[in-house]
Amino acid sequence: MTQLALVIDLNVCVGCHACVTSCKEWNTSGIAGYLSDDNPYGAEPTGTFFNRVQTFEVGQYPDTQTVHFPKSCLHCEEPPCVPVCPTGASYKRPEDGIVLVDYDKCIGCKYCSWACPYGARELDEHQKVMKKCTLCVDRIYDESIPKTERKPACVNACPTSARLFGDVHDSESEVSRAIREQGGYALMPEWGTKPANHYLPRRRIEVTIHDDELVRVDNPLKKEIDVGPSGPVREQTLDDITSW
């Protein structure tokens, strides 16, 4: 069974928000649109986004890490938002594991957003329906889009290729390999939701220079110091004082 998902590589994500606004522009005019914006030009503007990047600091100066953490619906394999939906609007597609909301059935009761431990769902205050990442279901199967680009908008946008997309149930897929080889992890596994989306951790490269690496026979400074035979020593040597 296929389970499509995103794997996000925190080792290279620079927090540029390309995924955030690419998602917004694709989806506001797409099947899940519109994505409304309240007070777009006024105080405290707020709008619907399917994907947001949180930035936080870890550790104390000077050993501080600045972490950028993109987050969208994780398309859980055991999605707690689905069973709580009274109308069946919230559902998980058997064919590819994408969790979706059927706007025609959604009554905006918010049960699903309370059930979601990740805060991935946002109620559109104007349409009164629950919205969230669709894994760009209206892109990834669209045959009018060239095959190599038939991926979520955020994945194509990401300048650091921090966003990988694929089937996490196919052990040979790029995403499965990345999870396996780079310590991919799921968020809050203790909730039993089995999120399909995974994150790859920061990795730190260190360089060790041993003291003796600074010593080299071909040190170019030697070329600048005269080391060749010099004239006789003027001071006393053993030559002058003993005969054996």
Binding site: A18, S29, C158, P159
Partner: peptide, 29 residues
């Protein structure tokens, strides 16, 4: 779409950005 800007994406055949875009580029609308 209908003369209005629907989506701006990076051009994969462009030598500079090779298909990617940034937050600003994607907010050109």
């Amino acid at each position: 779409r209908d003369g209005q800007v629907r989506y701006i994406e990076g051009n994969p055949d462009h030598p500079l950005n090779k298909g990617v875009i940034c937050a600003k580029g994607a907010s050109g609308i």
